[in-house]
Design a binder for these strands. Structure first.
Length: 264
DNA sequence: ATGGTAGCGTAGCTA
């Protein structure tokens, strides 16, 4: 089973790149974030024509939006609202084999890394606290689960281009990393990419639009993640971070797809 | 220390 997660930053604007991705890599399941489209306007037909006839999308006007597109049947589709907001930041579904899939778009958190001065950062931290409580409350600890998405946190030193220079930059602050760690422990999540790539190796999935030459300066961060629960760890076959997609132009997403293969 | 770009939707918010 091949699963991809990608923050597409407008699925309508970049539908051609989504189709290129599915043509080139043929994932069984494609999870998108920042689709930025209401459900009625989601380009489902184009994906169904490629075999992705199973879909669960949850979008809103202008912001956020998450989607699961699948060639495999989806059941028990749903999603949760977090922090008493209507934001479309989570969808879930069950895949064949009883695998529970969660697709998240965690708030970015704004610029000022102080929850007392910055409502957006306060929201992000609350969201993480709710995710930890949710992980703690998950029933059936033996259930195979996959969590993907733009989690907007780069937890390890080598998940950013400069640990020292980003310590006070939202996405890499100690408080966020601590809360993400708590969330991982609560749900017994395993980082499926770092399962293969040692923590001493740098890896990024996002490069800002605000730098002239993203590839040369390479000031990236690993914001996009795929986690699995322990029953799936022995089934992990490998991962791919599609760095080349950052150059799919002339107007690429600032995030690239992350993919894992599972022997299930 | 600052400003840099992008999408949506057409001003200003969000990233």
């Amino acid at each position: 089973m091949r699963i991809v997660t990608w923050n597409i930053n407008s699925v309508r604007l970049r539908l051609d790149m989504v189709l290129r991705l599915v043509d080139d890599y043929g994932p069984d399941v494609l999870c998108l974030q920042e689709t930025k489209v209401v459900d009625d306007a989601f380009p489902l037909k184009e994906l169904a024509a490629r075999g992705y006839v199973h879909a669960h999308v949850r979008g809103m006007k202008s912001y956020n939006g998450v989607a699961i597109l699948s060639r495999l049947p989806l059941s028990a589709t749903g999603g949760t609202l977090w922090c008493e907001r209507q934001d479309c930041r989570h969808v879930q579904a069950e895949l064949p084999g009883g695998i529970e899939l969660h697709n998240f778009y965690i708030p970015a958190g704004g610029d000022i890394p102080d929850p007392d001065l910055n409502d957006k950062f306060r929201h992000k931290l609350r969201f993480l606290d709710e995710l930890a409580a949710w992980g703690e409350a998950l029933e059936d600890r033996q259930k195979p689960r996959i969590l993907v998405g733009d989690l907007n946190i780069a937890p390890l030193e080598n998940d950013v281009w400069s640990h020292r220079q980003l310590l006070n930059v939202i996405s890499h602050t100690p408080i966020e990393v601590e809360k993400m760690d708590a969330m991982m422990r609560a749900g017994e999540w395993v980082d499926a990419v770092r399962h293969f790539l040692p923590a001493t190796e740098k890896l990024y999935t996002w490069w800002s639009y605000r730098s002239a030459d993203w590839g040369l300066s390479d000031r990236g961060r690993r914001l996009d993640h795929i986690w699995v629960t322990p029953p799936l760890v022995p089934h992990l076959l490998g991962y791919t971070v599609m760095r080349e997609a950052r150059g799919w132009g002339p107007k690429p997403s600032d995030h690239v797809p992350v993919m894992i293969d599972l022997a299930v």
